[in-house]
Each structure stands twice: as C-alpha cells, then as structure tokens.
C-alpha cells in the first residue's frame, strides 16, 4: 500500500531535477528495487500510472530494475546469491552474513527532454 506514497515522493524528486535542468518533460525514470526493500515493482508501476498524471512526468516511462539478493559470509568470506528469507551463506551455511545487494530502493537516473 505504501507504493503510492512512495510514487508521489518520486514525482516530487523528479520535478525538482527537471526544474534544475529547465526540462520541458521527463521521458524516462529509471529505478532499482531489491526484493528486500519492501516494495513490489508491479504495484509501483500501477501506482506510477496514477501519480504521474498532471505532472511533468505525465508521459514518462518507468523502468524498474531488480537485483539479486547477495550475501557475503563473515566466516568463510564466500559471496553467494540467495532468497529474501534465507540470508545464510550458500557455501558454508553460516547465518552470520552481510547483505551485499538486494535491498536497494533507488532512483538511478532520469532522462529529460530539454529541447527548447
């Protein structure tokens, strides 16, 4: 449910960037969402279709990249891909791991139409 409020914040963020660059419109918004971010990409897409209305990003496309859940073992040092609720080392099985990727919630890039 918080995808809509997240999208409204995103539009505000994008509007500020567009204003700084005197853009006429926003063509594309590129996000990265990890499975452990608590945000569902499909719901974010639906929320975006509502949030973008009557904004400078009204015709923008939203690209969402996901990334693997990857941990590094603090014991044996191995880096392995895993699932969101099983953050144990894929090599030695120890639970003392550090998350390397998988909880990203990032605005990576916007593509602006700056033609005068």
């Amino acid at each position: 449910m918080h995808e809509l409020s997240l999208c409204q914040g995103l539009i505000t963020q994008v509007q500020e960037i567009a204003a700084q660059h005197q853009a006429r419109a926003v063509d594309c918004i590129h996000l990265q969402i990890g499975p452990l971010s608590g945000v569902v990409p499909e719901l974010l897409q639906s929320a975006f279709s509502v949030a973008r209305l009557h904004s400078i990003a009204e015709d923008a496309s939203l690209i969402i990249d996901t990334c693997p859940v990857r941990v590094q073992c603090r014991q044996c040092g191995a880096q392995t891909d895993t699932t969101p609720n099983h953050l144990v080392c894929g090599s030695c099985g120890d639970w003392r791991t550090q998350l390397l990727s998988g909880d990203e919630l990032l605005l990576l890039r916007v593509v602006l139409n700056t033609e005068q």
């Binding site: 963020q13 945000v39 890039r109 593509v111 602006l112 700056t114």
Partner: peptide, 15 residues
C-alpha cells in the same frame, strides 16, 4: 541513454 540523462542515485525515501 537517450535524451539528457541525469544520474541521480538517490534513495526513493530520501525526503
């Protein structure tokens, strides 16, 4: 990227 691409790399919850 096409158009004027701006790298942002900002958290979506930064506000």
């Amino acid at each position: 990227a096409h158009g004027t691409a701006i790298d942002v790399l900002q958290g979506l919850l930064s506000a």
